[in-house]
Computed example of a mutant assay.
Amino acid sequence: MIPSGVKVFLASHPVDFRKGIDGLVALVRDAGDPFDGALYVFRAKRANRIKIVWWDGSGVCLYLKRLEKAKFCWPRIGHHRVQLTSAQLMGTGSGSGLCRSSRRRLLGKSTAAK
């Protein structure tokens, strides 16, 4: 379970999924502090896998999820990061959350995503 107050950042640009924990932390370092307790979420090019890295107080943790028959819905590809709430992240993990109302709010769109 993700604590309700934790910050969650999505990298909107896909990353090379051969990167391990050190490579992902280096990407986080380019944009901020990887040791601030926030969750940093990355996706693969095909959008069927995500990796999440975070500092838990004693070390860096890595979480990987692969969807077998679906893809994660994601903001437009670009070189920016998007901040989510923990509830929005949980919806993204099911493969459906960002596709519906949450994506509209994040991107300022008036129509639903694909």
Rank of each mutant, 00 (worst) to 15 (best):
G37K: 02
A38E: 08
G32V: 11
C61E: 12
R103E: 02
S58L: 11
L89C: 05
R76G: 09
G32R: 04
D16G: 01
Q83I: 03
A47E: 09
D22F: 03
P34Q: 07
R104K: 13
C61I: 04
S94Q: 10
A47V: 10
G20I: 00
V41F: 07
L89P: 12
V25F: 08
G78A: 15
H79M: 08
R66I: 11
W54D: 02
R46K: 14
C99E: 11
L106R: 02
I50L: 14
D56L: 06
T85W: 06
Q83M: 13
G32A: 12
C61L: 14
H79W: 13
A26F: 03
S96G: 08
G37W: 09
K71D: 10
Y63A: 00
W55A: 01
F17G: 06
L106F: 05
A38R: 13
G78P: 07
V82S: 14
E68H: 11
V60S: 02
L84M: 08
S101P: 00
V41C: 06
A26Q: 03
P75G: 11
C61G: 04
N48G: 00
H80S: 02
V82Q: 11
R105D: 12
K65A: 03
D16R: 05
V25C: 05
L24A: 00
G97D: 12
S94T: 15
G91Q: 08
D30L: 10
G59I: 04
H80R: 15
D22R: 10
V53M: 08
P75Y: 09
L62I: 04
R103Q: 07
I77K: 09
